[in-house]
Design a protein around this nucleic acid. Sequence first.
DNA 1: TAAAAATTGAGGGTTTTCCCCTATGCCATC
DNA 2: GATGGCATAGGGGAAAACCCTCAATTTTTA
Lengths: 216, 216
Amino acid sequence: MATKILIADDHSMFADGIESILNRQDGIKVVGKCYDGISILPFLKQNEVDIILLDVNLPEKNGIEVCKEVIAAFPEMKILAISMFNQESYVSEILKFGAKGYILKNTGQDELMQAIQTIEGGNTFFSKDVTQTIMRGLMNDRKGGTKSEGFIPKITRREKEVLKLIVQEFTTQEIGDKLFISLKTVESHRSSLLAKVNARNTAGLVRIALEKKLIE
Amino acid sequence: MATKILIADDHSMFADGIESILNRQDGIKVVGKCYDGISILPFLKQNEVDIILLDVNLPEKNGIEVCKEVIAAFPEMKILAISMFNQESYVSEILKFGAKGYILKNTGQDELMQAIQTIEGGNTFFSKDVTQTIMRGLMNDRKGGTKSEGFIPKITRREKEVLKLIVQEFTTQEIGDKLFISLKTVESHRSSLLAKVNARNTAGLVRIALEKKLIE
DNA sequence: TAAAAATTGAGGGTTTTCCCCTATGCCATC
DNA sequence: GATGGCATAGGGGAAAACCCTCAATTTTTA
């Protein structure tokens, strides 16, 4: 019985290439390809699939959301996340939602096959680079307050409003006008924000806000 | 006589996939794969190649530079640029340096084959999306400065260095010290950066830099 | 090789951010 | 009913960012 694989990637050239590689292998059959996030669930409801090769950066509905939904509907589904980038936030998030592995698009054929076989056996597979990234993430979690690198305390409701406006290029005065509070109050919030995310200035605040997705 | 193709892409999974597709076709032979920009010229000097499938975003030396060098050394070489992104600046630049076509990685197999055949015949091929982008680019040139929303101007080498340090929370003075240039010079670069990305302040600059990945 | 672009830098100004300190209502929880 | 977190806000000052104009040199490109 061949392992049934669904490839989900919006870059059809990539999806086709992977399909071509996999279909040459014994015991593997690519049963479908999805070019966006929304068509995956419907496909799964009508077809039998063992493993999904899921691109993390899908249009419309990204891989992380898709992963969450798929696992909710099919808890036994084996998902191998594939990404262009080795970003700690993506890796940890999609794993949290039940992906069984994470590889990068610069992974070779042999390693891809190894990943699929590993996942199929119910185990977990990470690319070497990704493993290092995860380790770094875990280290930060453990350390907590050693050098307070990577750790973010919680931002209050009002601070988040201010932060959002800062990222949108409004000045302190303009933010005050928008929120009907004084310039000084906005300054207070800015100070707290800088302290909480441990940034030296607005540049760092904005970078961290985007990196850690503190807004929206 | 089969058309000899060289694939240049740092994502080996992608390169392998394309190779697998192409080698199934009649009259096409993948004679080599390069995973970075610097190994392409040496390869061409020792092997006969008809068409290069060249990733625009290569590490070390990017596709645009590679294209320029290759055409300088082999003016008859046919280069088909392949990119993840449909960025006007990339498209127009690499075409300026002699690429014969530009397709995106979301291009299907059939279209890929069509592109290769077109290029081989000495003609030029663009993906549909790319054609539209070029048209928009031309329109913008004509109009001048309509509103240019979403347009990414090119950042110079030095500006990028400064930008990187801004995002890393260094102050203007500190950046000057690091780069051994005066505070005033750094201010000049900051001004240009703000103008180029059309930001009002550092917050916007950082946001746009991260959004548009101006700093890699 | 001439023209264009990039890099460098200055003077002199305004605006904004950042950093102290302090302080007062308003909540909720304990 | 006290403690603590949150939102509010002031004064005052230092630092940094931003703006404008100009210009010399170097590098790159056409």
